[in-house]
């Protein structure tokens, strides 16, 4: 497989009235083309801002760490995303190589411009197509994502569509420019389960057809299990575990991932009581020192976890977790 994306030492802080807060702390990962990567975490884990950093889409008070390197491997050679300055330069990634779909499609479409006009506009900007060709492609895409009577829908406004239809239109628009990477930020969270199942199916089909990579951000491990090839788990701005979807879900190694899975109400097991992770997610202003999970961790080693930031240790070949317990166990053997 060909490498599509390298993220090295991504650190992202925000300047706020209460001081500089760390949203992402030294995160590195790599993605191959045509893969679905699940990015899982709870609120405040930094999963959305990590994905937005791939096209420098964070607000102006964002400060990237000096070591941060994000490289996109496109057909015409690698692009250093951090070096892009003007919005003109940024168009290579924004809407060009990378498209994004958001959680709330109602808020992502302009309310007073028809869906068709919005689709045509972005195609004209990013691909240099003429209006007639752009219109044809847009209607074709709407049809492809399962919107019936696409040429009528093309003229409609976002409020005239139902929730599921809006998300489909959003996907059609994101894919019409033929991006290399699609970032999907909680794309099914606002949808009912029966509609969610439809949208997940659609996205799986599209990966097969278009062969792009997807970064799928969600808090729902079930959705990840159904869609992703690989999974990365984030907690308070750090990557705590990554590996293939089977490894991470079946044989999770980090105490946080274990806790998340134990807290999940499962239909195939109604007898086991739900086990919450003790305590609350700390505010980003009060990040614990050492391992960020140490104050909620049921198997904390004490001093070492407070004093030392754990690095990734291999669990198996492709599966890694950042936890001191794994080194200690390996050392004990």
């Amino acid at each position: 497989m060909t490498r599509l994306l390298d993220v090295e030492n991504l650190t992202l802080q925000f300047d706020t009235d209460e001081g500089r807060i760390t949203a992402v702390d030294n995160v590195s990962f790599a993605r191959d083309a045509g893969q679905v990567m699940g990015l899982v975490g709870e609120s405040g884990s930094g999963k959305s801002v990590t994905a937005k950093s791939l096209m420098k889409l964070n607000p102006s008070n964002a400060v990237y760490g000096p070591q941060t390197r994000i490289t996109l491997h496109l057909d015409d050679g690698p692009v250093d995303v951090m070096a892009l300055k003007s919005s003109k330069e940024m168009q290579v990634v924004r809407g060009g190589a990378i498209s994004m779909i958001f959680q709330e499609p109602m808020a992502s479409f302009a309310p007073a411009i028809s869906i068709g006009d919005q689709m045509v506009e972005q195609l004209e900007i990013h691909t240099g197509m003429g209006p007639k060709r752009a219109r044809e492609i847009s209607i074709e895409m709407l049809d492809r994502v399962g919107i019936s009577d696409a040429s009528t829908r093309f003229k409609q406004y976002v409020f005239e569509l139902s929730g599921g239809m809006r998300q489909r239109a959003m996907i059609a628009m994101a894919l019409s420019t033929n991006p290399k990477l699609l970032i999907a930020d909680e794309p099914t969270t606002a949808l009912d389960v029966t509609i969610q199942a439809q949208v997940i199916d659609l996205m799986k089909d599209l990966v097969t057809d278009f062969g792009m990579g997807i970064v799928f951000i969600t808090h729902d491990l079930g959705v990840i299990a159904q869609t992703a090839d690989t999974v990365a788990v984030m907690y308070l701005g750090r990557l705590v575990e990554q590996g293939s979807v089977r490894e991470v879900i079946r044989t999770s190694a980090h105490p946080y991932t274990n806790g998340l899975i134990a807290a999940l109400p499962r239909l195939d097991d109604l007898d086991t009581p739900l086990t919450p992770i003790p305590g609350d997610i700390p505010s980003p202003l009060e990040r614990p020192p050492g391992c960020v999970f140490n104050n909620r961790c049921p198997v904390s080693l004490g001093q070492r976890c407070i004093a030392e930031v754990p690095q990734f240790s291999p669990v198996t070949g492709t599966h890694q977790a950042a936890c001191h317990l794994i080194d200690e166990r390996a050392a004990a053997k």
Partner: peptide, 25 residues
Amino acid sequence: KALLSAIPSLDPDDRGKAQKLEGEI
């Protein structure tokens, strides 16, 4: 039945067996 089968399973090998409902409410 459809509602139950639409819940995404936590088993990565249990994909696509769900009875899918067409359309919306």
